[in-house]
Design a protein around this nucleic acid. Structure first.
Lengths: 225, 225
DNA sequence: TAGATTGTTAATCGATTAACAATC
DNA sequence: TAGATTGTTAATCGATTAACAATC
């Protein structure tokens, strides 16, 4: 078995490259240089080359990268070329907006269902997705081989829902609740805490207010200005 | 004028500390150690102490940190003690779910309005927030001194909406659309691209699928397992 | 060949970790 | 005083940046 050590910033940038390349492909651009790709995502061209070189030699010296070829390679790396069934837990505002996310289907995710405990919601459809009970969810998870779940439930329900999901064999949980979810080590938990971003913005604004000027910083390797 | 250089991971962790301290305060816990606080957010106690020491000496050696005191200090640092009027642009699913976000009001943000161009929506209320036109938005922005905006509009509208906001004097934009927004240098733009997180999860799952096991990594300084 | 751009190496930077003196 | 925990320093680690040889 081979061991991999890919810096997280690299993976996140691959995701950005992927979208830019998609756009280029749509526009019929055949070749792209690391400088152009870097500019598009707001980073240095060296980073682009370094990131890509971790996975192979995709470019041609003196020429650049074949857009379609590179796109296909990155898609494969990120698993965007396969179909990933996911379930969304919580059919509230956030859950619904995630279900409605256009990039979702488009990028290889397939929301098989939304789980909720509210009897009023169960049996209905939200954004053309069936809202189901946990009993039905269990069946669907087995049936579709669901391995990824998205959590958009109230804070106090997070931990028990995560347990439930783990018991049902889910291997990856993307948690949007503002709480740090801890799962067993074999389950990949990714906490995305939106309040952190609000606080991040406000911190800077607050410094400005106080007559202080923070130095430019970077966010997750993505330059912002 | 004083110059500040605060690592971004530190700011994000301050946000996490803030919430944990809020919970402790609610539970009536008077004192907390860096070890306890570190455990609660899943990091090493040394990081906690280092982060806090950037802003002052908040603890007592041999004892720990006074929960209420530390909470108040961090609130002040992050600007959570003041009221920040914000507007949300885009009254669709994502915009609505952000408006519904309970932590919003609670943590010092005040959504004064939601802006939309759909005549069907203008004049209605979403989550008790008025949906207004750009003309009305302009008035409200001036009236409330709005400096922060949240973007939840379709991809193709992002750049022009950002321009509009900048023209109206908005200084900070939190962009949720999966596009890298570039604003003028005096405007703070924070791109939060949810698709990046999906890809991040999937990348790991994809490696697992291929029989590879990625090493444990960290996300934005927050350990996950 | 001349020009361009990759892939890669070495230097730099910054954040995390480990360790411990200070001190309650 | 003994035990505990902070604030801080030095060592480590890892990512970014700069530079350039390889090569189309």
């Amino acid at each position: 078995m081979k061991f991999f050590k890919v810096p997280e910033p690299t993976i996140m940038r691959l995701s950005l490259y992927s979208r830019i390349l998609e756009q280029m492909e749509d526009r019929g651009v055949p070749i792209i240089s690391s400088v152009e790709l870097g500019d598009a995502v707001g980073i240095n061209s060296g980073v682009v080359r370094k990131d890509l070189s971790m996975f192979g030699e995709f470019g041609v010296r003196g020429v650049g990268y074949n857009v379609r070829e590179l796109r296909d390679n990155i898609r494969k790396l990120l698993g965007q070329d396969r179909n990933w069934p996911v379930i969304i837990v919580g059919a509230g505002h956030l859950g619904s907006s995630l279900a409605a996310y256009p990039g979702f289907q488009q990028r290889g995710f397939d929301v098989v269902a939304m789980v909720d405990t509210d009897p009023e919601k169960i049996g209905t459809q939200v954004i053309e997705r069936p809202v189901v009970s946990w009993e039905e969810a269990e069946i669907l998870i087995k049936e579709h081989g669901v391995r990824m779940a998205i959590l958009a439930v109230p804070v106090d329900a997070v931990q028990s829902v995560a347990q439930q999901l783990t018991d049902l064999g889910v291997e990856a949980i993307l948690n949007f609740s503002p709480i740090i979810l801890k799962g067993p080590s074999h389950v990949q938990v990714q906490n995305v805490d939106l309040t952190v971003y609000f606080d991040l913005m406000r911190f800077t604004q607050n410094l400005n207010t106080n007559g202080l000027r923070p130095q430019a910083t970077t966010v997750r390797g993505i330059a912002f200005r």
